[in-house]
Design a protein around this nucleic acid. Structure first.
Lengths: 164, 164
DNA sequence: TAAAAATACTCCATAGGTATTTTAT
DNA sequence: ATAAAATACCTATGGAGTATTTTTA
C-alpha cells in the first residue's frame, strides 16, 4: 500500500462517489476506480458493497476509513513537524545567563520568544560567564547572556554587546 | 510523499547506510539514494548530514525517524485491523438469549468465544423469543439463542436445534 | 585502494489518461 | 435517457535497474 490508496479511498468516501472524488482530486475517474480495486485486492477485503452504480461502505470500509484518516494525518504530521523543527519553531533552546546582570531583560526576552515560538522548549541555566563559555563550547547551551567585561571576545563566538 | 519514502528512510537509518538498506530491501542502491533525495527535496529539510561517504542523521532527521515509524506503524495497523475485522476477529457481536432456558450453556459458550476472539465485543441481550425474531430481522442482534417450541421455523432463518 | 554514496543513463512497470461499455436510476 | 462506475486500451512519467564516477576512510 502507498499513501495514494488511502488518499483516494478517503476522497471517495467523503465525496460519496468516484465521480465527485475524481473532480476534487483532479484525477481521471477510471484511475480512482482502479486504485480502489487495487487496494481491495491487496488487502483482500471488500471496502465497498458495489451494487452496480452505487457505492456503499461495508463495515470493514467504515473501519478502514477511520484508520486511513489517521494514517494520512500521521503522515502529514510527520512532514509538518520536521518542517517546523527546521524553521526553528520546534525543538529545544538552551540558554545560559548570569544572574543579577540579566534579570533586567531576560524575563521579557524569554516571554516574547515563547509567544513567537510556542513549540520550542526553553531551558534556562544560570551560569557564571566562565561556565557559559565552557558549556557553549561543549554544545550544552545554544546561546548565553553574559557580561561584556568578563568575556575576552573570542573570534569563534558570535557575540553582541548591548548597553543598558 | 508516499509510504515508499518513509519506508526507505527508516531502512537506511536502521541499516546505518544506503548500501546495507539496499541489501535488506532488495532494492538497488541508487534507487534508495534517489528516493531519499526526493524526500528531502519534497519536504525541503535535510534529514542527513552527508559528509561524503558517511550518513549521519540531523536533528530533523531524528525527529522524522520517530514520526516516520509512527506513520508506517499506523498504515500497517489500518490494514491489519480491517483484515482482522473481515475474518470476524474484530468487531461487535450482538446476541439475544432467553433467560432461564439458556443459562445452562450460555456462560460456557460465551467464555469460549471470548477466548478465541478477544477482539470481538460481545453484547448480550435477554429477549423473549418473539423479541429476538424482531431484533434479528431489524439487524439489532446478529444471532440468538431461543426455544425451539417458540420459533415457527422460518425459511429465512438459519436455525439449528440442539437437544439438551 | 577499497568501501560507500552519488551521478548518468536506460528501461519498463504502472499510474493516469481517453474512449467505450455496462448498469441502475 | 441519463449519470455513474467498470472495463479496455494507450501513453508517459518516474521508479528501479546497470554502469560508472566521486569521495574519504
Amino acid at each position: 500500500m502507498e499513501l495514494r490508496h488511502p488518499r483516494y479511498f478517503i476522497a471517495v468516501v467523503e465525496a460519496k462517489g468516484v465521480r465527485e472524488a475524481s473532480r476534487r482530486l483532479h484525477v481521471a475517474q477510471p484511475a480512482i476506480s482502479q486504485t480502489l480495486a487495487n487496494l481491495e485486492d491487496e488487502i483482500s477485503v471488500a471496502l465497498f458493497s458495489r451494487t452496480g452504480r452505487s457505492l456503499k461502505l461495508t463495515a470493514e470500509g467504515e473501519l478502514f476509513y477511520t484508520e486511513a484518516r489517521r494514517t494520512i494525518a500521521q503522515s502529514e504530521f510527520a512532514v509538518e513537524s520536521v518542517q517546523r523543527a527546521s524553521r526553528g519553531e520546534l525543538g529545544k533552546l538552551s540558554l545560559g545567563f548570569c544572574g543579577a546582570a540579566t534579570y533586567a531583560f531576560m524575563p521579557e526576552v524569554v516571554r516574547r520568544y515563547k509567544a513567537k515560538f510556542p513549540g520550542v522548549k526553553i531551558d534556562l541555566r544560570e551560569l557564571t560567564p566562565v561556565q557559559q563559555e565552557a558549556k557553549f563550547a561543549a554544545g550544552t547551551i545554544d546561546a548565553g547572556f553574559t557580561r561584556a567585561t568578563s568575556a575576552k571576545v573570542d573570534a569563534s563566538l558570535d557575540a553582541r554587546l548591548t548597553s543598558r
